[in-house]
Design a protein around this nucleic acid. Structure first.
Length: 437
RNA sequence: CGGAGCGUGGCGCAGUCUGGCAGCGCACUAGACUGGGGGUCUAGGGGUCGCCGGUUCGAAUCCGGCCGCUCCGACCA
C-alpha cells in the first residue's frame, strides 16, 4: 500500500476526549473516529487490525470444533419475552419499533436466537454435541460508555454456544472453549489469566473471565504470582482428548476479580499475591438448562424421553481486544503491534522521494517484499524524514525498512525493529533475504 | 441517573469574570530555502463562537431553556 494513496488521517496532538493510552493512540493513528458516544467508525488502518483479530478468533474457534454461522443484529422482542429476559435486561437493551409497531431490539447477546435455531432443527441426542458461534456487532446501551472501543455501546463480539445432552458433556464443551481461549489470546501476544467470575444477567453457575493485566483495566484483580510464570500452552492441543488436567492447571491457583475476591484466600497467599487492574477480554459460562427449558430446546434421549439440553455460552470482545492489545503493547512514541495483529507487517520509508536512486530502490523493495507475501505500507509521500519516522513509530508496524540517498547510492538499506528500536544497515540483498524475498 | 467540567476554523487552545473589529499554535494552499527524528521564511484560504429564545444601540461574552461530549460513582464484553 502506498501511503500517498492511503487514507490515514493521523493527529499530531492528543484529542481532548481521550483519556487512556489505547483510545488516544487509536484516534491519533487514524484507526477510529467517534460517531456518537460509544459508537465508532473504523477507518482503514483500524479495520485491518480488527479483521486480523477477528480472523485469529475465527481460526481458533474452527480448530476447536466450533461452527460459524451469522445471526442478525436485530431480533424480535417476542423471543426475549419467552425467556423472561425482555424485562430483566432493562434500559441497557436498545428497543426499536418497526413500521408495523412490532417490538424489535438490537441484540445485546444471542442466547435466545441461537436456542430458537437449535430447537427448530436438532431433535435427537444423536445430533449432539454441537458448538456454534458467530462474530457479530452487538449493542448495549451502557450507562457510561468510555475509553473508546474499550467500552463502547456498539461492539464486535464473538459468541459461541454449546449444546450437550448432559452435564458431563457441557463441562467438556466448557473446557474446550477454556483451552481455545488460552490459545486465542496467546496468538495475539497477550497474557490472559482465567479468573473465577460472577455470572451476571447471562446466568449459570460455572464461569471464568479471561483478563489481561493492565493499569487501565476496569476490574480490580488479584491472582497467584505463579500465573506470571506458568508454562504457556503449545499449539498442538488435541481437542478430542481429555482437557481437564490442562484446565485444572489454570484453575487451581487463586485468581479472581472484584466481588469474587476472597480476603481469606488472599491473606493466605502472602507474598505470592499479586493485585492490580485488568481488562476483561473473554467470558465463558456454563448455565445448564436456563434457556433450553423456557424456550423448549429439547432432544429425544436414548430412552425415548425428551431432555432439555445443557448449554453454555462463550464470549470474546473482538473490538475491545484491539484496544487491549494497544494497552499491553505501546511506548511513548506510539503503538507496537505484535506481528500476529499488525495492520501491515513492514513499513517502507523513502526518505527522499525526489532522489531517483532512493525511489528506484524503494520500488524494487516494495515489489519484492510484496511478492514474498508481506503486507507493506510504503511511505512514498513528499514529507520530511522526521515526519515519516514519527508517524511510522506512531502506527507501530513491527518492521521498518528505511531507504535514503546515501544508502541507495551505496546499495544498502536500514532495518529497524519497532519493538526494540534496534537498527541495522545491510546490503540490499541481505535485507531482502531477511524477509525471504 | 446523581456529582463535576467542557462546547470558539480539521486538531489543541486563548478570549467570557469586566459586552465594543473573532484571535494564537499546529494542520491546509502557493512560493522560496532546506533535507536522517513531527524544519525555516514569505504570502494566503478557512469559523452560523453547540442550538433556540431573551436583555442591550451592540452578545462568543449577560440571562433562560435545550442539545452534545468528557470525567467521577452505581452497571457491563
Amino acid at each position: 500500500m502506498r501511503l500517498s494513496r492511503y487514507f490515514l488521517p493521523t493527529l499530531k496532538e492528543n484529542p481532548n476526549e481521550a483519556q487512556i493510552v489505547s483510545h488516544r493512540l487509536m484516534l491519533r493513528t487514524g484507526m477510529i473516529r467517534q460517531s456518537s458516544a460509544g459508537i465508532y467508525t473504523w477507518l482503514p488502518l483500524g479495520l485491518r487490525v480488527l479483521r486480523r483479530i477477528e480472523q485469529i478468533v475465527r481460526e481458533e474457534q474452527d480448530a476447536a470444533g466450533c461452527h460459524e454461522l451469522l445471526m442478525p443484529t436485530i431480533q424480535p422482542a417476542e423471543l426475549w419475552k419467552e425467556s423472561g429476559r425482555y424485562d430483566a435486561y432493562g434500559p441497557e437493551m436498545l428497543r426499536i419499533l418497526d413500521r408495523h409497531q412490532r417490538e424489535m431490539l438490537y441484540g445485546p447477546t444471542n442466547e435466545e436466537l441461537i436456542t430458537e435455531i437449535f430447537r427448530g432443527t436438532v431433535k435427537s441426542y444423536r445430533q449432539l454435541p454441537k458448538l456454534l458461534y458467530h462474530i457479530q456487532w452487538k449493542f448495549r446501551d451502557e450507562i457510561r460508555p468510555r475509553f473508546g472501543v474499550m467500552r463502547g455501546r456498539e461492539f464486535l463480539m464473538k459468541d459461541s454456544y454449546s449444546f450437550d445432552l448432559d452435564q458431563a458433556g457441557a463441562i467438556r464443551a466448557y473446557n474446550t472453549m477454556f483451552v481455545c481461549y488460552l490459545r486465542t489470546f496467546q496468538r495475539m501476544g497477550l497474557t490472559a489469566i482465567p479468573m473465577r467470575a460472577e455470572t451476571g444477567p447471562i446466568g449459570g453457575n460455572l464461569s471464568h473471565e479471561f483478563v489481561i493485566v493492565a493499569d487501565t483495566g476496569e476490574s480490580e484483580i488479584a491472582y497467584h504470582r505463579d500465573f506470571e510464570k506458568i508454562d504457556w500452552i503449545g499449539s498442538d492441543i488435541d481437542f478430542e482428548g481429555d482437557l481437564q488436567p490442562l484446565v485444572d492447571q489454570f484453575t487451581t491457583k487463586y485468581a479472581a476479580t472484584d466481588e469474587q475476591r476472597d480476603a481469606a484466600a488472599e491473606a493466605a497467599l502472602g507474598e505470592d499475591l499479586v493485585t492490580g487492574r485488568g481488562i476483561e477480554v473473554g467470558h465463558i459460562f456454563y448455565f445448564g438448562t436456563k434457556y433450553s427449558k423456557p424456550l423448549g430446546a429439547t432432544v429425544t434421549g436414548p430412552d425415548g424421553e425428551p431432555v432439555a439440553v445443557e448449554m453454555g455460552s462463550y464470549g470474546i470482545g473482538v473490538s475491545r481486544l484491539v484496544a487491549a492489545v494497544i494497552e499491553a503493547s505501546h511506548d511513548d512514541a506510539g503503538i507496537i503491534w505484535p506481528d500476529s495483529v499488525a495492520p501491515f507487517a513492514v513499513g517502507l520509508i523513502n526518505l527522499k522521494p525526489d532522489d531517483a536512486a532512493s525511489s528506484e530502490l524503494c520500488e524494487r523493495l516494495y515489489t519484492a517484499l510484496t511478492a514474498a507475501g508481506h503486507e507493506v505500507l510504503y511511505d512514498d509521500r513528499a514529507e520530511r524524514p522526521g515526519v515519516k519516522f514519527s508517524e511510522m513509530d506512531l502506527i507501530g508496524l513491527p518492521q521498518q525498512v528505511i531507504v535514503g540517498p546515501r544508502g541507495a547510492k551505496a546499495g544498502t538499506v536500514e532495518l529497524k525493529v519497532r519493538r526494540s528500536g534496534e537498527r541495522e544497515e545491510l546490503p540490499v540483498e541481505a535485507a531482502l533475504a531477511r524477509f525471504g524475498a
